[in-house]
């Protein structure tokens, strides 16, 4: 391995992850505390409601399933390997993942087309939105390419990526897991860290404020300045 590529590996798999993670935590918290008003999904359904459905719905269902898959593989790699030990189960897992990834890609492309074509939509699309769309599209397409060209990702994610990510989390990064990986996979990882880096500067913060208490709270909300003194 020549030194230039090892230098690049150091930059992308050692420096970038830490810069990205630090920025992610620091800026999301700072933004939440000082600029809470800017936490919003910035819905655009009010301005365009037909193409909206065909873009936003498939994209979200797709991306949520795929991301959940990644998170599960990160936390319980052993269980994934166990599941994949039967070929049928492996095919089911890989097939599902691919279907949802394609769903995400189709939805994302529809959303981008909508943003570009409808003049009202262009008005509510910021430059950061375009950067975000580009990163997401690259990420999803790379993911699909990885899935198709290097089977079976669900298994080797558990044996090589999970340990690498854990080594990053444990603050003793071990690059030996990632350096031998094919270029497409490497790009997918690098772009993922770029997304994490950009996260706090985009509308993606809406993912952090999904309102789970709604499912449990009472329908009506009353706020008091003086709590009534019960007799």
């Amino acid at each position: 391995m020549n030194s230039a590529s090892s230098y690049l590996d150091q930059f992308f798999f050692l420096a970038l992850p830490y810069v990205a993670l630090f920025t992610f935590f620091f800026v999301t918290i700072e933004r939440y505390r000082n600029r809470k008003f800017t936490y919003s999904s910035l819905s655009s359904q009010f301005l365009e409601n037909q193409q909206h459905f065909w873009g936003l719905v498939p994209f979200h269902y797709g991306i949520l399933v795929v991301i959940t898959g990644h998170i599960v593989a990160f936390f319980v790699p052993r269980e994934i390997l166990w599941w994949n030990s039967k070929p049928l189960r492996l095919y089911i897992l890989e097939g599902t993942a691919l279907v949802f990834a394609i769903l995400a890609a189709v939805g994302l492309i529809a959303a981008i087309v909508r943003r570009a074509n409808v003049s009202k939509m262009r008005k509510v699309t910021s430059p950061v939105d375009w950067v975000l769309f580009a990163l997401l599209l690259i990420q999803v397409l790379l993911g699909i390419e990885v899935a198709v060209r290097y089977p079976w990702g669900s298994s080797w994610f558990a044996t090589s990526l999970s340990p690498y990510l854990w080594s990053v989390v444990r603050l003793s990064p071990d690059l030996s897991y990632v350096t031998p990986l094919p270029l497409t996979v490497k790009l997918h990882i690098i772009n993922a860290f770029l997304l994490i880096l950009m996260f706090p500067f985009t509308r993606l913060v809406h993912i952090l404020v999904i309102p789970n208490p709604y499912l449990w709270r009472k329908p009506q909300v009353v706020r008091w300045y003086r709590r009534p003194v019960k007799a």
């Binding site: 208490p213 009506q220 909300v221």
Partner: peptide, 30 residues
């Protein structure tokens, strides 16, 4: 409106019943 808000951004003021929408809590779930 209050009952539908997933974020709990809308509320009724206890003292006078005025229904308000907390701009800091609204996340555009509409």
């Amino acid at each position: 409106c209050v009952a539908s808000c997933p974020s709990g951004a809308l509320y009724k003021r206890g003292e006078d019943g005025i229904v308000l929408l907390d701009q800091n809590r609204c996340r555009a779930w509409r």
